[in-house]
Amino acid sequence: MTLPTNPNPLPPAPASDRDVTLAGLLADVERRIADTLAAERDRWSSVDPRCGPFVDVVAALSTAKGKLLRPRFCLLGYLAVGGEAARLGSAVDAAAAVELLHSFALLRDDVLDDSPLRRGMTTAHEWHAADHRDRALRGEPRRYGEGVANLAADLAHVYADRLTRPLPEAARAVWDELRVEVTVGQYLDIAVAAEGVADPDLSRWIAICKSGRYTIQRPLQFGAALAGRPELAAAFAEYGTALGEAFQFRDDLIDAFGDSRETGKPAGLDLARFKMSYLLSLAVGRDERIRRLAAAPGGPAEALRMRELLVETGVAEEVEQRIARLVEDARRAVVDAPLVPRWRAELLDLTSLVAYRDR
């Protein structure tokens, strides 16, 4: 039996920059991911029928029409520094790898947070725990569900890494740093929450490491390194650090004040579980009532009271003002950088989309 190892190649890249659109490239990224996972599903289903649904755990998250922010920034990093149209296939592979890595991170994050919803769907660990109970399988349902989700996360990580294998060494170095940072940031996130540490500086660093660099800075630098323009890494670092921080602060506000029907995930989860976001770290240092609530995390009633206090004490407004300053910092970082004007304009437009989104 011969097993396929690679999906069908992408069609040839456009002949000139005039033919290139970001929407078209993102569609190529989605197709690359879908083709990769479809080929893997067929491959492993021929070994055992259980394996197809296992690959589908990755596919369900990776093809669920998310925001595609990370592949968007990866592609813009390549295009904005003048990456060659003839090598856009490699840029699409890199962007697809970044999105598959995001699926890895979400699967793992949902287990760590014990979150029941993601993008409006039951999370993988919850679904498989329920399946275990429904079929009266042996063992403990929760451990089974979490095991399946963690293994699916590993599978997404392997597929992501495989897409980066042909890339130049300089691009692979950025890729490796991205993976290390998001893992260390995730560890510190759960460690600080478990210890109940309220340190705004540390929470800010975790937000930058776990989310900001991973979402914006490193994907931009990944694309620039692929194009052979590492000298623009500093401008992308300045832009990515500022906008990445704004991105995470908006996440904090969405968790605290968002509508789960709009966001597709539970609202108030970080507050109820004393997850030391920058928002909560600031608030704990500001008000004794918040400190008392945070010392003994409760349920929906306590989360609601925490939201009220975040507004009453002015912490929520302070974070909004900080987001506005960070957006201006990000814009200044690229407005005079030696970038292709068309793609610089896209980067400037994205600052508002990222910082003022509602989910």
Rank of each mutant, 00 (worst) to 15 (best):
T2Q: 15
T2I: 14
L3R: 15
T5E: 14
P9R: 11
L22E: 05
G24C: 13
L25R: 04
A27P: 06
D28E: 14
V29H: 00
E30C: 08
R31K: 10
R32N: 13
E40N: 12
E40F: 11
W44M: 07
S45W: 05
V47E: 11
F54M: 08
V58A: 00
A59E: 03
A59K: 06
S62Q: 02
P71H: 00
R72T: 15
L75V: 13
L76C: 01
G77I: 09
Y78P: 08
L79W: 04
A80W: 03
G83W: 02
A85Q: 04
A86N: 10
R87A: 14
G89H: 05
A91D: 01
A95H: 02
L100H: 00
H102L: 03
H102Q: 10
L106G: 10
L107W: 09
D109M: 07
D110S: 02
D110F: 00
V111Q: 03
P116M: 06
P116T: 10
P116Y: 09
L117K: 10
T122A: 15
T122H: 08
T122R: 14
H125E: 08
E126F: 05
A130E: 09
D134K: 13
L137N: 10
R138N: 13
G139T: 03
P141D: 02
Y144T: 11
G147W: 00
V148H: 00
A149S: 12
A149G: 04
N150F: 03
L151H: 11
R162W: 01
L163H: 07
R165Y: 12
A170K: 14
A170L: 13
Q186L: 02
L188N: 13
I190Q: 15
I190F: 15
V197W: 07
L202Y: 05
S211D: 06
G212N: 02
R213Q: 12
I216L: 12
P219H: 00
L220F: 10
A225M: 06
A227N: 01
L232A: 09
L232R: 07
A234Y: 05
F236E: 01
Y239G: 00
G240M: 03
A242Y: 06
A242K: 11
L243E: 03
E245I: 02
F249S: 03
R250I: 07
I254Q: 09
D255S: 03
D255T: 02
F257W: 07
G258E: 01
D259N: 15
D259A: 03
K265T: 08
A267F: 05
A272G: 10
R273M: 13
F274K: 14
F274T: 12
M276T: 15
S277R: 06
L279A: 09
L279R: 04
L280Y: 06
L280F: 07
L282I: 04
G285F: 08
A294T: 01
G298M: 10
G299D: 14
L304N: 13
E308T: 10
L309M: 08
L309D: 08
V311S: 12
E312Y: 09
G314I: 03
E318F: 02
V319R: 00
R322Y: 00
I323T: 08
A324N: 12
A330V: 00
A337D: 10
L339C: 04
V340E: 14
V340N: 04
P341D: 13
W343E: 11
W343P: 06
R344L: 09
L348R: 04
L348T: 05
L353A: 12
